[in-house]
């Protein structure tokens, strides 16, 4: 069968199926379950109308339940079992996590990531948005800053691995050190600080995202409020921090929380650069290191991540809604 025909049949079946579902379910509701006959037809009609919305909601609820709610419950359930999933061990995986130094290190590192990456990415994005706004080649600068968004995390990590490479012939950092006649070193093996060198990669990627959103927000500020502030004697700094930034605060919060949620999910960067060695482990990459080895423990980590992300997510949605109003 030709792919076109297949497509058409799929569309026909899909659309037809939807129509058939709504038609048939309403028919059953009106004719069989609550027919407008018998002792009290008015009450039957009212009841049918109360049930009707749920007929329309059902497919969406079912799909969401299957793909969102079930995996959450399923993961939690799985995290209560041992490595092969053969033996129920209660909260054993969580206890093991709590006792594991690497896990605690990962939590601490993740804490650093959440603190630093969204803050710096948003800050640089804001600066880039403001500084590129009024200059002729601003749009070119913007495209360049936005470009890393198009690179996959793994790709970006590889690029930065070159930047950090030990060999002064390859690594930018060591080439600079070499120019000052300093010994080459591996930045990714410097304890504690190597975390920040990895964060740079994500900041590099996310600044473009923050810039684009914040640039649009800055343009949405009514020009008159800025002019009024100029007349009131505000200097460029006061204009920016006292008039412009407060007006786009809701957008800044949304950008910030969106990046925060992302930070709690990104494992690729650590995975592709240090593999979590040299004290750079974070939760997602820690989870990945147990995946397929000890699914019980991996799902337990996943669950911990979800618990951490949840409040940020709720806050994010509240802010986004506020801004939409």
């Amino acid at each position: 069968m030709s792919p076109i025909l297949q497509g058409i049949i799929t569309i026909a079946l899909g659309v037809g199926g939807c129509i058939a579902y709504f038609y048939a379910s309403n028919l059953v509701l009106d004719k069989v379950i609550f027919p407008p006959r018998g002792a009290d037809p008015g009450r039957n009609i009212n009841r049918a109308n109360m049930v009707r919305p749920w007929l329309f909601l059902f497919p969406a609820i079912a799909a969401l339940g299957l793909y969102l709610a079930y995996p959450v419950v399923g993961s939690f359930w799985r995290s209560l079992f041992n490595r092969n999933g053969t033996e129920f061990i209660g909260l054993g995986n969580y206890q093991k996590l709590a006792a594991d130094d690497t896990f605690r290190q990962a939590v601490f590192n993740n804490f650093l990531w959440v603190l630093v990456v969204p803050a710096l990415a948003t800050f640089f994005g804001l600066m880039a948005a403001q500084l590129t706004d009024r200059i002729k080649w601003g749009n070119i600068a913007k495209s360049l800053i936005f470009m890393p968004m198009a690179i996959s995390f793994v790709g970006a990590s590889l690029i930065w691995k070159f930047v950090y490479a030990n060999n002064p012939q390859i690594g930018l950092i060591n080439a600079i050190r070499d120019a000052f006649h300093l010994q080459p070193l591996d930045p990714l093996q410097i304890p504690f600080w190597n975390n920040f060198f990895l964060m740079v990669i994500l900041i590099w990627i996310q600044t473009g995202f923050a810039m684009v959103i914040l640039s649009a927000a800055l343009r949405g500020i009514p020009e008159e409020t800025v002019e009024a502030a100029v007349l009131d004697g505000a200097n460029p700094f006061q204009l920016f921090f006292k008039i412009k930034v407060p007006q786009i605060m809701p957008t800044i919060v949304v950008v910030w929380t969106t990046i925060t949620i992302l930070v709690l999910k990104v494992f690729d960067i650590v995975y592709a650069t240090t593999g979590g060695n040299f004290g750079t482990q974070i939760l997602p990459s820690y989870m990945m290191s147990y995946m397929f080895r000890d699914d019980g423990r991996a799902t337990a980590v996943a669950f911990v991540i979800m618990i951490i992300v949840l409040p940020v997510m709720i806050w994010n949605i509240i802010q986004a809604r506020k801004e939409m109003r």
């Binding site: 009514p222 008159e224 002019e227 009024a228 100029v230 004697g233 008039i243």
Partner: peptide, 16 residues
Amino acid sequence: PANRGIAMVFQSYALY
């Protein structure tokens, strides 16, 4: 503008 000793009222109010 700030040193001209003027104040302006805008059509759109331009309140902060």
